[in-house]
């Protein structure tokens, strides 16, 4: 079976557990994004890269690669469009000292924020995230909708995988023309299946007295020492 985010999240090693993990990551993200200090970015990047690597191993690096394809060209644009004292000139591009500074700060801030977000994504399943939201007193209907949407996405992906296997086994993607035609058929079939599935889901919920309440379970929080130490370190980084 191929590896999905869900399997990574379930199998990841967690040093901070329960709802605390979500609050810890969100507070760190908040501090990092608001900080104007480069030390905070470096500190956050280092700490959360270590935590993420410890939690999910090489998966962290594999996923970090994806936003890099967007981030690096953006940083290059920042580098060349920022006006200031010209340090280097290449054809029509002028690289200024201010441009280099801004690109470094923007890059570090972006990577630091990404590492925190990836830590959250790699260690926290959606139900765990929703459970933490409930602690924050997010309205019940939002939690209900979030859980139902997540379940519908799971169902939709299962259906898509089944249909995709059926299409692949009968050479549905043998050439570009067939690819387009199969993809269109697949989209249509998934739409129909999702309608039929939604009816069945509604029936299943009614059969168990659905009253608009979706149970959410909280795991006991642990790892307070690590969370507090990291937050203090980031806060000190902000103040330097």
């Amino acid at each position: 079976m191929h590896e999905t985010f869900e399997t990574v999240q379930l199998n990841s090693r967690k040093v901070v557990k329960g709802d605390l993990r979500v609050f810890f990551a969100l507070t760190s993200l908040f501090l990092t994004v608001l900080s104007q200090n480069i030390h905070t970015y470096v500190l956050s990047l280092l700490i959360f890269s270590v935590l993420s690597y410890q939690a999910a191993g090489k998966v962290y690096l594999r996923i970090l690669r994806i936003p890099m394809y967007f981030l690096l060209p953006s940083l290059f644009v920042v580098l060349i469009v920022t006006k200031g004292e010209v340090m280097y000139k290449l054809w029509i591009f002028e690289i200024s000292k201010e441009g280099v500074n801004l690109a470094i700060i923007t890059g570090l801030r972006a990577f630091a924020s990404l590492s925190i977000l990836l830590y959250l994504i790699l260690t926290t399943t959606i139900p765990e995230f929703v459970s933490a939201l409930r602690k924050l007193r997010v309205p019940e209907f939002i939690i209900e909708i979030a859980v139902l949407i997540y379940r519908c996405i799971q169902i939709l992906l299962d259906e898509a995988e089944r249909l995709n296997n059926a299409a692949t086994s009968r050479l549905g993607y043998v050439n570009k023309r067939r690819f387009v035609s199969t993809a269109a058929l697949l989209a249509y079939s998934i739409f129909l299946k999702s309608l039929s599935r939604s009816e069945k889901m509604e029936r299943s919920m009614s059969a168990r007295c659905y009253s608009g309440k979706m149970p959410v379970r909280s795991e006991k929080s642990s790892g307070w020492a690590i969370a507090i130490l990291v937050l203090i370190a980031i806060a000190i980084g902000c103040l330097i």
């Binding site: 379940r151 069945k200 889901m201 029936r203 299943s204 919920m205 059969a207 979706m214 149970p215 959410v216």
Partner: peptide, 26 residues
Amino acid sequence: GFVFQNPDDQIVAPTVWQEIAFGLKN
């Protein structure tokens, strides 16, 4: 109580705990 033919049609919650707790919560 009604147990559907296809469990995928019956399961409405993402985790096992949530699925079993669903009816009780309601």
